[in-house]
Amino acid sequence: MNIESFFQHFSNAVSLGSLYALIAIGYTMVYGILRLINFAHGDIFMLGAYFAFYCLTLFMMPWWVGFIVAIGLTACFGILIERVAYKPLRNSPKVSVLISAIGVSFLLESLGVVIFGGIQKAFPIPDIFGKVVVIAGISIVSVNFFIPIIAIICLIALMYLVNYTKTGMAMRALSKDHEAARLMGIDVDRVISYTFGLGSILAAVGGIMWGMKYPQLYPLMGLMPGLKCFIAAVVGGIGNIAGAVVGGFVIGFIEIMTVAFVPELSGYRDAFAFILLIIILLVKPNGIMGEKLAEKV
């Protein structure tokens, strides 16, 4: 492999890893406070991409307006899903909520087929993201530069929100003790909505950038990335935001680099994440950054 194609693969892996990281955070945050794997998260990602598509094609909005509207809409949907499908089950056994999540996932996928249509749609890539940039003989599509930059901006914003705002503190408190949080006068349902909103925003950002990197949209597009990002969250240590980011990059790199170095395996591209999941569960079930917190009674 020559150095040019290596760098092409490298930039590809960085941008794919960034997307996985953004989506994986949504899984990990929701798990952190509700102990729920939100299987609908991959479909929220799909909704983000489709909303952007319609904003740009049907409503002819300027791309940045369209993207913001799509992200906002997706956040509202994320919050709505929690209110309708998870909140009524707050005091039910965990498995009921899990089944509800799987149901929502199927519902969104099927509604997607009915409303958006099963035929693939081409994402209208704004010029600025579609340029081919040539640096030292290596040609890279500009979206591959934008993705990591936008991902980093999102991550910094999220870290600020989670670590330095009162609502962020409440989110972290909820990950340990809902009842004690209520005794502080914290409106638990509001904090949960906020968490779903944040996770959905990140999923929408991921979905839109995914659409620009792999510009075919179809209603089941969230399924495989959703599963891989769930694995990324587990690999990184579920409940841990930094872990989700690490897990996202690990999976992005393994996927791109294995195919790059061993092209014969390219048909197994989607399998690597699952193999990694099995290995992690055997070797380090708490995940790379998962820790057992010492608690005193």
Binding site: A170, E179, G185
Partner: peptide, 29 residues
């Protein structure tokens, strides 16, 4: 709680993953 009745629950139930300052911030949420 907002009307002024505050319960310190059995077993203290502080938030172990938060700093002391953050625990106090949530107390005054």
């Amino acid at each position: 709680v907002r009307s002024g009745i505050v319960l310190v629950p059995e077993g203290r139930r502080i938030f172990p993953n938060l700093t002391v300052y953050e625990n106090l911030v949530l107390g005054g949420y």
